[in-house]
Design a protein around this nucleic acid. Structure first.
Lengths: 189, 189
DNA sequence: ATGACTGTCTACCATTTGGTAAGTGACCAC
DNA sequence: GTGGTCACTTACCAAATGGTAGACAGTCAT
């Protein structure tokens, strides 16, 4: 499943044949089919695991962190950590969500709690005056897009003479936090 | 070619068979092969056209606009305009760039001038004191990722009860501009 | 009129794809 | 030891894939 996650994320689901995946693992395609029933079953399992892992990682990042800006910082830090450590996790979710029915629905069902939680947190922050008022969804989408885009378009990074390593990620994290700071900081003028 | 661009962007290159594409167009696969030689030829043609179109659109957006912040605003506006009007343009570039050798190289060669130009513009702005000093590549990547991510993960938008329409795009544009404003505005404190 | 060229078609082809059927050996309860 | 399950294999298969070969009709210069 780890191999499948990486392969799906890197080459896409349609671009990953069971034969190739099996060859990489040193087993036969039928072994994979035995465990997952069908390619769809494999996708489902990979999706469920990836969503679960993502939720767990983000959950762990905010546990014990006070609400408001510190939580935002923690989530951003954790996200870029994931982008470096386990880019396939974000990649495979994006890839499966792009797959069309019924996979996108399935993926969204699994991620909806995360999204909802983030939006609620932002809304509470806004109500409490910790954040500037605004549409939390726009901010969330934008922030997510930065992280996701960095993982997905790592080719582009290379085009600029950069790599998706710790230093780059730290720079991007600072940039995104500066972005978010501007959009969220309560207007004190 | 228009149909191929849309199909590649929506379903991915590997996920788009010549048979299916031909059926959509009401011709046979061999007609496509006659004009483009091979699937690779079609990809190449689609890629070249998309890169050209993108360059032309962005070029047109900044012509006559004064350098510095107004140019940034113009490019952002044009990008979101494209995201709404021709999402397949950005989508197909991303999709082909993710394809691995030799397509990624090919795509990057075509886009490199655009990237270089943006970086040079940002650097000049920084030197002239129009922008805050910083790594222009980080800012460019982040900004690009927002636009690209919004196009690519339009599923996610739907999950939040949004659509990639003019109103949403305007909201995202404001958010991104607020992001960029924070990262670029000269420190006047 | 005719020959060349162009665009499209039908008819194939080899390979790859996801998937089924039937076997084989290891382990394990009884 | 025997039956059963588990993990995995080999042997297939039908459909789909990218691609080739050749026929057929329209256009156009000579």
């Amino acid at each position: 499943m780890r191999a499948a996650t990486v392969a799906f994320a890197e080459r896409g689901v349609a671009g990953t044949s069971l034969d190739l995946l099996a060859a990489e693992l040193g087993v036969t395609k039928q072994t994979i089919l035995y465990h997952f029933g069908s390619k769809g079953g494999l996708i489902e399992a990979v999706l469920a695991r990836a969503a679960e892992d993502l939720a767990a990682e983000l959950e762990a990042a905010v546990v014990g962190v006070e609400p408001g800006w510190p939580s935002v910082e923690a989530v951003v830090r954790a996200s870029f950590g994931l982008a470096v450590r386990r880019p396939e996790l974000l990649g495979v979710l994006r890839e499966i969500a792009r797959l069309g029915s019924p996979w996108s629905e399935s993926a969204l069902d699994l991620l909806q709690p995360l999204i909802d939680r983030a939006i609620v947190a932002l809304e509470h922050g806004m109500e409490a005056g910790l954040f500037q008022a605004g549409d939390p969804r726009l901010i969330l989408v934008s922030a997510y897009a930065v992280v996701s885009g960095v993982v997905a378009d790592s080719e582009l990074l290379r085009a600029m003479g950069m790599r998706l390593d710790l230093r780059t990620a730290a720079g991007l994290r600072r940039t995104l936090l500066s972005f978010l700071g501007a959009a969220l900081a309560p207007t004190r003028s």
